[in-house]
Nucleic acid binder design. Structure first.
Lengths: 137, 137
DNA sequence: CATAAATACTACACAAAAGTAGTATTTTTA
DNA sequence: TAAAAATACTACTTTTGTGTAGTATTTATG
């Protein structure tokens, strides 16, 4: 597994919200559109609000909307905000002190892949993803 | 997390065995050298034997040795044999039917990197890893 | 033949991620 | 002002990966 379910959900939610013109998104609406378990979803969205990515409005006419500008939110930031572990920045064989100087057997194979992927995640903002056509969330 | 612990262990064991000239490897010996929990390790090695990667010899002078030629065992095969899930070859957002024709938002961000990585894993055999110096297992 | 030491098997324990349930709080609206 | 509908919070349950324990089976060796 590359990302945890929680991270998958968080990324999907934010990309979905970035694509749809809408003042406020309730968790129920996002749940219905993305089929993410409702209660679990509310926790994730509340969490994203606490982390400063979303703004939450309470009460009957409440919901969520972006707090930051879309071009300020990179994919890597989202992942880091939600992912429990360090994600990618570990040795792929789980060894301590794995580095270029003291590499494990798979170090260089993985390092190249990891760097390239993380560069992509760092350079891609939600604003970038809005401009491309997406059919599935 | 990229690989499960189980897969990490399996890969480490096989790479270790490939590097050391030795007729037979007992689980106890591998445990002492690699510090992988003994009981867990025996399960993994027994499993690798069932999958045809290792041959197991029972009884007092028993142990494990390779069943196939080292240049026939690619890293991708090992991972696929042990990893519960499909490993890398899934949609990074967990969506069904994600493909070049019907891509998710992150499909092309991840796909190119993934393909390259999987190509490396497919082209690298245990025999290849024997020829490089490895200090840690 | 009995013991030792290895693999093989089964069941259970633990921890973390994922998901569910219920309640509290806030705010709109009839 | 009371009900409705939203977020916020807390606790529990389920699932899965990881790890532990004990026993059965096999085989070499004294």
């Amino acid at each position: 597994m590359i990302l945890t379910k929680t991270t998958e959900y968080a990324v999907r939610v934010l990309i979905f919200m970035a694509h749809e013109e809408r003042g406020l998104f309730t968790a129920r609406y996002v749940h219905e559109r993305l089929r993410i378990p409702y209660k679990y979803l509310t926790r994730i969205m509340t969490d994203l609000a606490k982390q400063g990515y979303l703004e939450s409005i309470r009460g009957r006419a409440g919901g969520f909307r972006f707090q930051k500008n879309l071009n300020k939110i990179t994919l890597i930031k989202i992942i880091e905000a939600v992912e429990a572990t360090d994600g990618f920045d570990k040795c792929i064989l789980g060894l301590e002190d794995c580095s270029d100087e003291n590499p494990c057997a798979l170090h260089f194979v993985w390092e190249k892949t990891k760097k390239e992927f993380m560069k992509n995640l760092s350079n891609t903002t939600l604003a970038d993803l809005v401009s491309i056509e997406i059919k599935k969330f």
